[in-house]
Design a protein around this nucleic acid. Structure first.
Length: 345
DNA sequence: AACTAAGACAACCGCCAACAG
DNA sequence: GCTGTTGGCGGTTGTCTTAGT
């Protein structure tokens, strides 16, 4: 069988579109509406294939496309939908008015994906990455505080299924039993607990996106399974426990250090308005970035071919850090507490 | 100032499903 | 039912810009 490529004919131009080409395409579609894309370039006087014209129109020239940086709400929506739908960019784009699947895909690959990786999360499963996760640090924290030993809350079940890791965990646990104080102390002295901290995110309830998807005809079974999978595989520890509870054995200074790291901002019920204790050291950091605001987001004219690269389209004042810190509040999954470590050991 | 690397985004490629003849 | 066409989708590449040295 095999289908002939739509752009294999000689004389058809490829590469970036010029303003003149954009104008021709827009003028033609405004007059005739997009119909048969194969005939459009010929009728519009373009040396392009129909597919190229369609992509240019749908991804860039369409008047209802929203340009400019993604808002926090949009980013949150993307991440949550991605946790449910996976790489179904068109499905995700359908729930973000004015955004194209291509734009969302690019944004995911260039921003969110890297951010997740830096946070130690697998961008595919949204679960902690075991290849960089310091298991011993997790165990050390567990050992220093028995109530902390809900390993299911620290690791996804898939990681617990790894026999090598289980052996390691068993070995460390037995070591601890034999020589509790020095072992725990050593782990703490080596700042391993901080490593653990850097791999935690706070679980939260799935938001109304789930209901929306249900109303729009998505199978409740599929969505439920997806959410359950995300809950089980997702990162599982409750950061607020570390930051606020007196039950754990983390020194106060450690808590402060943790909270004050911009990358680990307090998780707020409203991700756009972080809850920042007035007296915390983080407050000063936050204040130092006060020049950030949503109003600083400047949209880009639709027809402009390159201005997205313009600095004006980016949030000033450490936006990347802001995003990264706020991002921690986006992975919102309720984790069952019932997983018993003993079943795996 | 020149060069290089990394980042960001637009565009392309190939596959697939739906549809029409 | 078969075949070709079309549009849609996700993955990947190409190109331009920016940052760093």
């Amino acid at each position: 069988m095999g289908r002939t490529p739509c752009c294999d004919k000689d004389g058809l131009k490829k590469g970036p579109w010029t303003p003149e080409e954009d104008l021709k395409l827009v003028n033609y579609i405004q007059l005739h509406r997009p119909g048969n894309w194969r005939t459009i370039p010929k009728n519009a006087g373009l040396q392009r294939c129909g597919k190229s014209c369609r992509l240019r129109w749908t991804n860039y020239l369409r008047p209802d496309i929203k340009r400019g940086r993604f808002s926090f709400e949009e980013e949150e929506t993307i991440i949550q939908l991605h946790s449910i739908l996976g790489n179904k960019w068109s499905a995700i784009a359908a729930r973000l008015p004015g955004r194209t699947d291509n734009e969302i895909k690019n944004y995911w690959n260039t921003h969110i994906r890297k951010r997740l990786l830096r946070m130690g999360l697998d961008p595919v499963t949204h679960a902690p990455r075991l290849d960089i996760l310091d298991l011993s640090s997790i165990l050390s924290s567990s050992l220093s505080n028995p109530s902390f030993l809900n390993v299911s809350n620290l690791l996804g079940t898939q990681t617990l299924m790894n026999p090598d890791l289980l052996k390691l965990a068993t070995a460390i646990l037995s070591l601890k039993q034999e020589n509790q104080v020095p072992f725990t102390k050593t782990l703490q002295e080596n700042n391993l607990f901080n490593n653990l901290m850097q791999n935690q995110v706070q679980p939260v309830q799935p938001n109304n996106q789930y209901q929306t998807l249900l109303q729009e005809g998505f199978s409740s079974e599929i969505l439920t399974n997806q959410l359950m999978q995300a809950n089980v595989e997702g990162c599982c520890s409750n950061v607020s426990t570390f930051g606020n509870s007196q039950e754990n054995s983390i020194p106060t200074s450690l808590n402060e250090d943790f909270i004050c790291q911009p990358n680990y901002m307090y998780c707020s019920s409203n991700p756009t308005v972080p809850d920042i204790p007035e007296n915390s050291n983080f407050q000063s950091l936050y204040n130092s970035n006060q020049n950030f605001s949503f109003e600083s987001v400047v949209s880009t004219p639709i027809s402009s071919p390159t201005p997205l690269n313009s600095p004006s389209t980016f949030i000033k004042g450490g936006a990347e850090d802001e995003n990264e810190s706020y991002c921690n509040s986006l992975f919102n999954f309720e984790i069952p507490e019932s997983l018993d470590m003993s079943e795996f050991m």
